[in-house]
Simulated scan of single mutants.
Amino acid sequence: MAHSRSINTISAACARQLTDAAAAAAAEIGVPMCIAITCAAGNLLHFLRMDGAPLLSSDIAINKAYTAAGFGMATHAWHEFIKDDPPLLHGIVHTDRLVTFGGGYPIREGKAMIGGIGISGGHYSQDMDVATKALAAIGLAAG
C-alpha cells in the first residue's frame, strides 16, 4: 500500500510568466493591480504589487488565489453556490481567507489543478478579465 501520492503543481517559472502576463493586461487597461500565484496547496509562490496598486488589494489577491487553489473553483462561483443555502451562506463566509467575488481562478494543466491565480486592484470584473487574459497568454484556460 502506498503512503504517498504525487501532486502536480505550478513551476516558479510559470508563476513568473503568469505574473508578467497579468501585469501587462492590467497595464493595458490602466489599472495597477496586485497579482498572486499559489502552488496547488495554496501557498504563495509569486506576488507583484504594481506601482500604484491599492495596499489593501495585496491580501485580497493572495486570498483569491488561495481560495481558488483550495477549492478548485473560481472565486466568483462562490456567490451562486451559497446564495440560496442559508446555513452555508451565513457560516462559510466566516472562513478565514475565503473570497466570494471575482478575480481568483484555479490554474489547470489538462485535468490537473496546479495552482491558483488571484488578481485585485480594480472592480472584480476587471480583476477577472486580467486573470483570464494572463492564463490565455501562456496557453492555460480559466478553470
Rank of each mutant, 00 (worst) to 15 (best):
T19R: 15
H76N: 12
P106Y: 09
T75L: 07
G104Q: 08
G115Y: 03
K83G: 04
D84M: 07
Y105F: 15
F47C: 04
I60C: 10
G42R: 01
F81V: 03
T67N: 03
C14K: 11
N63D: 15
W78V: 13
H90T: 12
V99R: 03
I10M: 05
T100G: 01
F101I: 12
A41G: 15
M33H: 13
C39W: 04
T67C: 09
L98V: 12
D85K: 13
F71S: 13
I107L: 11
T67G: 07
L45Q: 12
L18V: 10
H79Q: 15
P54H: 08
P86I: 07
K111D: 15
G103A: 04
F47Y: 13
D59V: 04
K64C: 10
L55D: 13
T95G: 08
G30N: 06
R108I: 03
I37Q: 02
M50W: 04
A36S: 15
K83N: 09
C34Q: 05
R16Y: 11
L88T: 14
I29F: 12
A77M: 12
M73D: 02
P86F: 02
D51F: 11
G42E: 03
T67L: 09
S11K: 11
V93D: 00
A25K: 02
L55V: 14
M73W: 05
A53P: 01
W78E: 08
A26G: 05
T38E: 02
P86K: 04
A41P: 03
G102Q: 09
G91R: 06
F81W: 06
C34M: 04
G72Q: 03
A15L: 10
W78D: 05
A22T: 02
F71V: 08
L48P: 04
I10H: 04
N63C: 07
A27M: 05
L18F: 09
